[in-house]
Design a protein around this nucleic acid. Sequence first.
DNA 1: TATTGTTATACTCTATAACTATA
DNA 2: TATAGTTATAGAGTATAACAATA
Lengths: 158, 158
Amino acid sequence: MDEPANNLVRYANYVVESESDQPSLASRLRLAVVRLNRRLRAQRASSSVSLTQISAMFCLRKCGPLSPSELAAKERVQPPSMTRVIAALEEAGFVSRRQHPTDGRQAIVELTERGTAYIEAEICAREAWLDLRLAELDPAERELLSRAAEIIDRMAGQ
Amino acid sequence: MDEPANNLVRYANYVVESESDQPSLASRLRLAVVRLNRRLRAQRASSSVSLTQISAMFCLRKCGPLSPSELAAKERVQPPSMTRVIAALEEAGFVSRRQHPTDGRQAIVELTERGTAYIEAEICAREAWLDLRLAELDPAERELLSRAAEIIDRMAGQ
DNA sequence: TATTGTTATACTCTATAACTATA
DNA sequence: TATAGTTATAGAGTATAACAATA
């Protein structure tokens, strides 16, 4: 798994392969992600739930109840950031908090029925803009993005 | 170009195709982009230039000198947001501002020599994290991400 | 002493509304 | 009156540092 030399070789190959008058793959992927993220955040106006909050709720739905620290680690943010996300979700009634049965320091955060329903239903409407953009692509492009989403998420989770 | 009915059909097909126990492509792509964006922003600590500023400089390098409004439109942000980006870049000496020859209201923003050098050189170092992640992929995955970056940027630019 | 979580504080990115200067 | 740009202000998202409670 840990083969820096090999990675460097492959990296060199990849650089050499790229056309010299075009930005690197890293540059292009970064700019694409920055711009799509900006557009997605701009769609939040119609909803009271932010992208960050939705991302955390997705994580809870996928993983089940988690402590704030676990949730912060999975979302790759610092604990104080997650404190704020959880507080907002709790106030909205989308997650509940209870004490850990044996460790008084820990809390356990889980989706409420309302939070689950929100994630499973309202998100579709919320994603209308992206859904439309995706619908304008041809099936091969969507298939490509589907695999790209998997790779990107894997990279971001490292 | 404008075929909503066709898009709806294709959208329906795409929904039917997806596995019912898996989040939609829109959800997965959105979460992947949010998480990678977060990781990329976290890499900014070592540099004084933000992702947003770099994105604007890339645009200037690609398009040549632009007015603040044109730059804001291309980056899909509001003019006041671009005002701040330009001010920061100007203070850092990466862009310069001059008056439009005939229209006194307009300004023209362009990369300085220093800004051009920055974009063409220092970005590579700045993207070390993403470069490493990309180097760990196999060539087919990088090729896939290269095409995905193109599609994503096109979607975000609409 | 180490871990979990929160509070305090600050910075970036973005937006809208209101203003100034020019056309 | 319309356009280009800036200033004022606000809110989201994130971080680090310092603190409290528990193990």
